[in-house]
Amino acid sequence: MIITRRQMFGLTAGAAAVLAFNPQLSFAAPDETEAAIKAFTGGATPTEGTVSLDTPEIAENGNTVPVGVSVDSPMTADNFVESVLILADGNPNPAVATFHFTAMSGAADAKTRIRLAKTQNVIAVAKMNDGSTFIDRKEVKVTIGGCGG
């Protein structure tokens, strides 16, 4: 069968429509991300600031996206960052990693590489030893997703 230019347009539009209306059940709903944040903070709404995420604006390969997180804290025995939760709200499962720091860490900085299934927000939530929580969000555009197979 020879596909004319006109037919090709129709096919592409049809395929796009199917993709757009097909609910992606396997991907995490934003509620799940919110629930994960709530579970981590103990119900409190985290404040913006103090914690900062370092992510690339565009990730060519979703299989390894470098992500850095740093928290502004003196890191002394009575004032330090306890843990930082990393979430990705568009992955099949929003949890990515949890870093636990101690006063011996010296600086609340950590870098790792993560998988992102599609363009989405990466979220970092930091919890201090006094119980206060902070949040930062960054959007990462993903060219090739990292959860296929």
Partner: peptide, 11 residues
């Protein structure tokens, strides 16, 4: 000093 819990989304 430091520890980390990882989920499947780590590369």
């Amino acid at each position: 000093v430091f520890s980390c819990d990882m989920d499947p989304a780590v590369s």
